[in-house]
């Protein structure tokens, strides 16, 4: 098993009196694919926001590739190798599909703005490399023929995939996917499942997935963490999670604690 790329422990965040996340911990190694689930309002997206620096944790440690990132700017954390997608899609709508991906390559750019203005050989070479990388990613995500369209004009499923392509363009060590299957039809979900696996295998990225589609989560995640009211109530393999009474209770209430298959179809 390769070294841990993401290690978080004891992460807490309160908003006023609300304990949004309490002593959250997770560890991911390159190529890991883990899931983060929980009922609505359980604090899943807050965890993402804490990991990516949108919020500063009140307590706890977060290390990305061995370096502490708690309290750093999101852009620094992204430069360190953390990329994410958003639950409510946040594309650069007026920019072309290609430019959306090219922008994400910017974080690895080495030439200065002056080199860009003077169009030095180095800047030109790097712009060509960005172009090639972005087009390659669009190919992988089946978006190549939409490269010149504006991001906002893409169909919903394509927008979700473009978000993942954009996140990958930052060369992440850790990829956080926030409900990537939301709003997709069964066929698109199937393709997405294959795509996520492919990304993990080809890019050796550690992936942490928030998803409400239990079928998808149970199928592709190796381990799953379950949150409820900001607390981690269970952690384990899909099989363990499906049979965990606390999870079933959190999702379905006490009465319906009879069907593990019920959880997988929720």
């Amino acid at each position: 098993m390769s070294a841990l790329v993401l290690e978080a422990s004891g992460v807490c965040k309160t908003f006023g009196g609300l304990k949004a996340v309490q002593s959250f911990g997770i560890s991911l190694a390159g190529g890991d694919l883990k899931g983060l689930i929980g009922p609505n309002g359980a604090g899943k997206t807050t965890v993402f926001n804490l990991l990516t620096g949108v919020y500063t944790p009140d307590e706890g440690k977060i290390a990305l590739a061995g370096r502490s990132i708690a309290g750093k700017r999101p852009s620094r954390i992204a430069a360190g190798g953390m990329a994410r997608t958003f639950q409510n899609i946040r594309l650069f709508g007026e920019l072309s599909v290609l430019d959306n991906v090219k922008l994400a390559c910017h974080v690895r750019v080495k030439h200065s703005m002056w080199a860009s203005v003077l169009r030095t050989p180095g800047s030109r070479a790097e712009e060509r490399a960005i172009e090639g990388k972005a087009r390659g990613l669009l190919d992988l995500f089946d978006l190549a023929d939409r490269a010149d369209e504006q991001g906002k004009n893409l169909p919903y499923g394509d927008q979700r995939r473009l978000e993942i392509a954009r996140a990958l363009a930052t060369d992440p060590k850790v990829l956080l996917l926030d409900e990537p299957a939301a709003g997709m039809n069964p066929q698109e979900k199937k393709e997405l499942r294959d795509l996520i696996r492919r990304v993990r295998d080809e890019f050796k990225t550690a992936i942490l997935l928030i998803e409400h589609d239990m079928g998808l989560v149970m199928e592709i995640c190796e381990r799953i963490t379950v949150l409820d009211y900001g607390k981690t109530i269970a952690e384990g393999t899909p099989g363990e999670i499906q049979n965990n009474p606390r999870v079933i209770e959190a999702y379905l209430g006490v009465e319906a604690a009879d069907a593990p298959s019920g959880a997988s179809n929720a």
Binding site: R90, K102, L103, A104, H106, V117, T170
Partner: peptide, 27 residues
């Protein structure tokens, strides 16, 4: 030249969505 370069895309991304821009590594 700024607009058509990688720096221009960084500028434009701020206008489009500051949070996403920051998440993609643009300070």
């Amino acid at each position: 030249r700024i607009k058509s370069s990688t720096y221009g895309r960084a500028f434009l991304s701020i206008r489009e969505d500051e949070i996403a821009s920051e998440a993609m590594g643009v300070d």
